[in-house]
Nucleic acid binder design. Structure first.
Lengths: 333, 333
DNA sequence: CTGAAAGCGCTTACAG
DNA sequence: CTGAAAGCGCTTACAG
């Protein structure tokens, strides 16, 4: 890599010092028009661009944001990153993107590295493995602005932008009930994972609110992946569930269910309507599932990034606030 | 944001100068064990991390790579970025991610900005709008390592990692022929866009090689989006095409075709098999299209990033070389 | 074993 | 209108 032109290089050509060059290029009133024109011309010829690293050092500002996602090759997170990217760029920030791959050790290393890179703020959706909150407390003590999105850790004093899973689930299940479905099953995730717990709670509240008896045989515990949906459906049938609709905790689960329904035949595919949380562009093309809750990923990214930049500017305080992003119930048929 | 601990802060506590602290922390042989232990302890207590910006300035190395994609909220690019990210991280680099949004002006700004940020190398998939190659020539003159991936500009002296669209198309269409399909139509994109031209060429070569007459009514020109697929299929039928298979230039086109086939009914959905280039995880779940060419996006990212890092290390020269990534024909039924 | 000097490229007071 | 000095935080010769 060739050495890039510096202020001094221009200075030598023009016959001034780097100080004057610096001022001339930034249209400082100190400098005469004639000089400015000359300096700019030479800068142009040399292909000069200010070294942002040097500038960062002198200003102690990098105009850089650190972003950590558990996965990037996932629609949901890719869309969130798109929202973050655009919002950041529009406000003059660049983003350094890191991926934790659901690994808490790696996440910690990324966090430390980003801090060492002097990012002005952090946006993170924590990995599922994250238990130890030490790094976060360290970041808090450094008073580095940090905003959680989608997956947050409460109690650390940071703000979060998330989806209200419980409300979204309750609303969606109520919508099914209003459409005449009464025997609604739930293939859910583990109680100890927040989205598992909250989505189930929403499901239960909806039944309760509409005065529908909750039948134990209509609920299956499991995980969040395709296999869990596949096994979950078989389990549901085995334990005597005869639903006219199923609320699948995630969309991989809904896909797994689809596979099981196909295999088992028996009219399941026609008789059972499916609801899930989380969308894919292809849902509408394939008309499955029949209902879903759209999580506005891009909006989550925008909001989180806006909030972070406000914190950086001091227009907003880290305060354990939770900003809920609106979801949409979609009828896909 | 609080002021972070610096070498000087540690120096004051320990009663040495920053030079010795710097050496102690990096286990320089100059320093005694006792001092090292003490220094490290204090560093730990103060939560010291070296300021990477300062380090970058002194070494003129940022350990940072600039990445520009046309879109990030797209499966294909999200996977490529995943491949880049991991490869870069594993070799000690961070990535600054920019999105051109298919806008050549924005792309240019990003490129200049990344250079100003002193990234050690650039990875870019150019926007569809890019015509002017000035920035790229400037980058070339600066001898900044740059590798194109997926979409490249030939003739500038940079290396590229791409898919061999023509070969992949030819192979895939031949596979259809070998499976007994003879009347294969093509709903394609514009001739003046590389993938449009190459995929069509592959299609034609396959027919030729297998001695199948190319019928003009079996080819429809258009674009690369869903709407083009939708209109394309209707057009195909109108002009008298009666294919037993259709090669759709992109997967949005295949989806648009699906919509049209459904609307028109007439057994099309059952009688016509569809082939496309580019996959989605949901394809296998929904068994449509019946055949597709899998572009190994993650591999593209890895290869491009590996190549770039080699160029940075001087182990590879920018030399207009084209590295083709293998594609896979997938039978999805 | 420890430190004063010089430098990476830039900018901000402060002098002249 | 122009420049010498000092500093951002770090590291690398070079002295002692």
């Amino acid at each position: 890599m060739k050495k890039k032109a510096t202020l001094n290089d221009i200075a030598k050509v023009v016959g001034l010092t780097k100080v004057s060059i610096s001022k001339a290029l930034r249209d400082h009133p100190d400098i005469s028009e004639a000089t400015k024109v000359k300096v700019k011309k030479v800068a142009q010829e040399l292909g000069y661009r200010p070294n942002l690293i040097a500038r960062s050092l002198t200003f102690s500002k990098t105009r850089t944001l650190g972003v950590i996602v558990p996965k990037i090759a996932h629609n949901f997170f890719a869309h969130i990153v798109a929202g973050i990217q655009k919002t950041a760029n529009d406000q003059g920030y660049d983003i350094v993107l890191s991926v934790s791959d659901e690994d808490d050790k790696l996440e910690k290393r990324h966090l430390e590295n980003l801090v060492a890179m002097q990012v002005e703020g952090l946006l993170i959706s924590v990995s599922m493995a994250t238990k130890n909150t030490e790094v976060f407390e360290w970041i808090r003590s450094l008073q580095i602005p940090l905003v959680f999105f989608d997956r947050h850790i409460p109690g650390l004093g940071f703000n979060s932008v998330i989806v209200d899973d419980e409300a979204a689930s309750q609303d969606a299940v109520e919508q099914l009930i209003d459409r005449g479905m009464k025997n609604i099953a739930h293939i859910g995730g583990f109680e100890w994972v927040e989205i598992g717990r909250k989505r189930r709670a929403g499901y239960q509240k909806a039944l309760e609110k509409r005065g529908i008896e909750a039948r134990p045989e209509n609920v299956v515990d499991g995980g969040f992946g395709e296999l869990h949906g596949y096994n979950g459906f078989r389990q549901l049938i085995k334990q005597g569930g005869t639903p006219d609709a199923i609320f699948a905790v995630t969309y991989p689960v809904a896909l797994g269910m689809l596979k099981a329904m196909r295999e088992l035949g028996n009219g399941y595919l026609n008789d059972i309507r499916v609801l899930t949380i989380g969308a894919d562009e292809l849902f509408s093309v394939f008309s499955y599932p029949q209902y879903y809750v759209d999580q506005p990923a891009i909006t989550i990214g925008q909001r989180a990034c806006d909030l972070l930049i406000k914190e950086i500017h001091g227009d907003e305080q880290p305060d354990e606030k939770i900003f809920y992003v609106d979801t949409h119930f979609v009828e896909n048929c």
